[in-house]
Design a binder for these strands. Sequence first.
DNA 1: CAACTTCGCTAGCACTGCTAGAATCGCTGC
DNA 2: GCAGCGATTCTAGCAGTGCTAGCGAAGTTG
Lengths: 190, 190
Amino acid sequence: MSIQTRRERERAERERLIVTAARELAEAEGWDAVTTRRLAAEIEYSQPVLYRHFKGKDAIMAAVAVEGCAELAAELREVRAGSAGPAEALANVAACYAGFGDRRPALYDAMFTHAVDLPFATPEAPAPLREAFGELRDTLRPFAGEDDLEVLTETFWSALHGLVTLMRDGRMRREHHERRLAVLIRRFSN
Amino acid sequence: MSIQTRRERERAERERLIVTAARELAEAEGWDAVTTRRLAAEIEYSQPVLYRHFKGKDAIMAAVAVEGCAELAAELREVRAGSAGPAEALANVAACYAGFGDRRPALYDAMFTHAVDLPFATPEAPAPLREAFGELRDTLRPFAGEDDLEVLTETFWSALHGLVTLMRDGRMRREHHERRLAVLIRRFSN
DNA sequence: CAACTTCGCTAGCACTGCTAGAATCGCTGC
DNA sequence: GCAGCGATTCTAGCAGTGCTAGCGAAGTTG
């Protein structure tokens, strides 16, 4: 069985190599720069190798997206844990989310902008996605009041998502970002 | 001057023809189907003609986006005018905005998702964009309280934008849409 | 009616995601 | 140690993309 396992290990390693290369290339030069040729050159294999691991470019992006969600979830968790009280947690988590989207636009796009056939709002969604959403939900729990927590979280998430994307594409003035965040938090914290 | 004006008129007509064809094709089959070849065939000219009118495909999308904004502004204005009181106006305008995005996904994408080099949050922004934003602003004015109206409007817009895009791409459950809208409106109406 | 200007078209470039089939590698049994 | 065999990787190519150089055919002007 040794040969078999070694092959599987190598295969898994190369799969990670692909995802990592795709992600780094995207973060450095944007997704437009991530062509199958370029990516193949980066991992020092030929193009068809990519297709032995993933169904296509979109599947690679989906893998990157899952990785990104895991990272986002970790960042949110840390920030939430380091906050003194629900109000501070809400503000910190919101700022953290927005900062993440702003700091890693390509990664954020793969996660939440690019149309990708990942199951999202279902039990079959990859764990990292559910964890990231769970962080938001736990942060909002103290502020739910009579609202359904799940629905409230989706709404708050929507607002954060809008803030990130509209600002990043230059549709809203960057210099108002902090004030918009403040407004959002104030409106959602009672 | 007659020949000159006739030529300009013909040129303007063809420009409208291009924009209309692009828009209809996009709404019918999505932006992926709007290739320069396909579009050229649709208007019964050859490809290079497109480039005598627009710098490239993005510029055509931008023109479609401006048209879409004019339409959105008109819809919002009508709905707002037909509302009895600020609270109803807020609910109606929000629902109208979301409905617009959901009903015309391709058009909405050109306006607010696709990266396009239109000036947005500046005085030089095309009138339709400013009008659409103005409708939102006027709707929110009664609820500004101590918040800056411009900032508040941007924040509310972000939330609506997030609701539309995240739901449309399947990242949030469609069946919660009404409840999310209700939560958003309640949180922003005091 | 000839010269000219303007304009749209044909043909083609460099690139994209993706894939069939050849070639090469490493493992296996003799 | 080596021939044969499978699995795997590569070469080469397809059909499509946005975009453009330069030719040819109009319509316009003297």
